[in-house]
């Protein structure tokens, strides 16, 4: 299955709901009611009140300037939407130690995303080492070990309750000793409002980045989350500086519209999209494609 097909089928549910209406909307008259309905549709897609208003204002301006309607206005709208978004396309360097630190709130899909990333980079020729940095949640270490077995990749772990920063230190040593060039670090889920736990993450990051390496911090966000995902983004970014967002669970009916305020208000770029349960279902984020798929008219 090609990437486009995968994205299409993954987003099929998303498309069918709200966004199909968007397309129909542009066929009608461009009046106050049109903008009102457009705003409603965006809000229902979790774009959020502020960003929606901003988008609508911008579209209104452009419409006035260029006197657009129908197809043209729709095209303008799509470019406006994709123009809002930001991509995180950093590259890993096989010649040095790369570290991907995976963080996020409880249940966002950190461990599963980590496994998918490991699978991807293994195929790309990297030598990944999985790091069980979630020493808190019951059986989190076991969960990562199961993935290690399935992917045939080594896992660095200590016993439950141990200091995650110590596990990370071990992992760095192990990477050096075994000649691995990619550490994928799982961490315990934590609500961004837990100050002490956010401090713990900072410590983990410090330990990991002590010696030179290509360290990237990835925030896993659940696409079914609403406006609170913005608060998560804000707080995690403030504490850790986030290099990219992994937006998971887009294969449900959630619209994923939260990526717009994330880009606009926090300038947080999206790194990957989680589109299903399979190992291959973690896809690169391409704004045009994302918007195109969202708004595509299937009728």
């Amino acid at each position: 299955m090609s990437l486009i097909d995968k994205l299409k089928s993954g987003l099929a549910k998303t498309r069918q709901g709200i966004w199909k209406n968007t397309v129909g909307l542009f066929r009608g008259k461009v009046d106050e009611e049109f903008y009102e309905e457009l705003a409603e549709l965006l809000i229902q897609g979790d774009v959020g009140v502020n960003t929606t208003m901003e988008l609508i204002e911008e579209l209104r301006q452009r419409q006035k300037e260029k006197n657009l309607g129908g197809e043209e206005l729709f095209a303008e709208f799509k470019s406006l939407l994709s123009g809002f978004l930001q991509i995180s396309n950093f590259k890993l360097d096989p010649e040095q130690l790369n570290i991907l630190l995976i963080v996020g709130v409880n249940g966002s899909g950190k461990t599963t995303s980590l496994a998918k990333l490991a699978h991807y980079y293994k195929q790309e020729g990297f030598a990944p080492l999985l790091v069980a940095g979630d020493t808190f949640r019951a059986a989190a270490i076991d969960q990562l070990k199961v993935w290690g077995n399935r992917l045939n990749l080594p896992v660095i772990a200590q016993s439950p309750g141990s200091d995650p920063a110590a596990v990370c230190y071990d992992a760095r040593e192990a990477a050096r000793a075994r000649g691995k060039n990619l550490l994928l670090v799982d961490t315990a889920g934590r609500l961004h409002t837990e100050k002490n736990l956010m401090e713990e993450l900072k410590k983990i990051k410090r330990v990991l980045g002590k010696e030179e390496c290509n360290l990237k911090t990835l925030l896993v966000l659940d696409a079914t989350n609403g406006q609170n995902a913005l608060e998560q983004g804000r707080t995690f970014n403030k504490s850790l500086t986030i290099d990219g967002v992994i937006l998971t669970k887009l294969d449900g009916t959630a619209k994923g519209g939260i990526v717009f305020p994330l880009a606009r208000e926090l300038e947080l770029p999206v790194f990957k999209l989680g589109l299903g349960e399979g190992m291959e279902d973690l896809k690169s984020f391409e704004p045009e494609l994302f918007v195109e798929q969202l708004l595509e008219d299937n009728e």
Binding site: G17, I43, Q44, G45, D46, V105, G107, D222, T224, N225, G226, Q227, N228, A229, G252, T253, A254, K255, I258
Partner: peptide
């Protein structure tokens, strides 16, 4: 999840 957004109704 208390943080669920607009999709809460669908699920």
């Amino acid at each position: 999840d208390a943080m669920t957004g607009q999709d809460a109704v669908n699920l």
